[in-house]
Simulated scan of single mutants.
Amino acid sequence: MSFSASSIFTISGSHRSLYLNGHPPTGVPTAEAEIGSMLMYYGGDLVDAVLFFILCMQWFKTARPRMISVAKVFQQ
């Protein structure tokens, strides 16, 4: 998943949770909709932070310079 796609999902999830807070679905009490939207808003941020951490770790593993062992250097 690219950075721009993950940004769009993050923004859309936040907006969706704020919309549900102000416009609860039919048959859902306002208090429950507020709790659900808060869980969706802050829980989504936690999930996004974990996914971002994993993305950065994978990037670091592929982009870091390779370590050459000292023994290989002196053998040449």
Rank of each mutant, 00 (worst) to 15 (best):
S14D: 01
F52S: 08
T10N: 09
A71Q: 05
A49Q: 03
M40V: 00
S69L: 08
F74Q: 05
I54C: 10
V50G: 02
P24Y: 11
V47M: 05
F74E: 06
V47C: 02
S69T: 04
P65D: 03
A31S: 09
F9Y: 05
S7R: 02
R66D: 04
F3Y: 13
L55S: 11
M1Y: 11
R66Q: 09
L55T: 07
I68K: 02
H15L: 15
L51W: 07
L20G: 06
S37D: 06
G36L: 12
R64V: 06
L46G: 05
R66I: 13
S12N: 06
F53P: 00
E32R: 11
W59V: 04
I35Y: 13
Y41K: 03
I68M: 03
F9N: 01
R66W: 07
V70D: 02
K61M: 13
D48W: 03
L51P: 00
Q75G: 03
F74L: 12
T62E: 12
I8C: 14
I68G: 00
D45W: 14
I68V: 07
V70K: 05
A49C: 09
A31V: 03
K61D: 05
F3S: 14
R66S: 11
T10V: 07
S4W: 07
I8T: 12
L55E: 02
S69P: 01
I68S: 01
V28I: 15
D45H: 13
Q76K: 09
M38A: 15
A49N: 02
R16M: 14
G36D: 01
F74Y: 09
H23K: 12
H23A: 09
A33T: 01
G22C: 06
F3D: 13
R64Y: 06
A5C: 11
Q58N: 14
S37K: 04
L51E: 01
F60C: 08
T10Q: 04
P24K: 10
L51I: 08
L39D: 04
L39W: 05
S37M: 13
N21Q: 11
Y41A: 06
I8D: 09
N21E: 11
Y19L: 12
G27Q: 01
G44S: 07
A71Y: 04
A31F: 04
M40C: 05
L20Y: 12
K61G: 02
I35D: 08
V50E: 03
G43H: 07
F60T: 04
M57G: 00
A5K: 11
L55A: 13
I11N: 02
Q58Y: 14
L55N: 03
L46M: 12
S17V: 05
F74C: 07
A5I: 13
A63G: 00
G13P: 01
M38V: 10
N21H: 13
I35V: 15
V28M: 15
I8G: 06
E32P: 00
V73N: 01
A63N: 06
D45E: 08
I54D: 02
R16H: 08
S14E: 06
S4F: 12
A31M: 01
F60D: 04
S37C: 14
M57H: 03
M40Q: 03
I68N: 00
M67F: 14
W59I: 05
H23D: 08
T26R: 08
E34N: 10
S14M: 15
M67D: 00
F74K: 10
Y42P: 01
Q75N: 06
S7L: 15
L46Y: 07
S14Q: 09
M1V: 08
M40G: 00
K72R: 09
L18H: 10
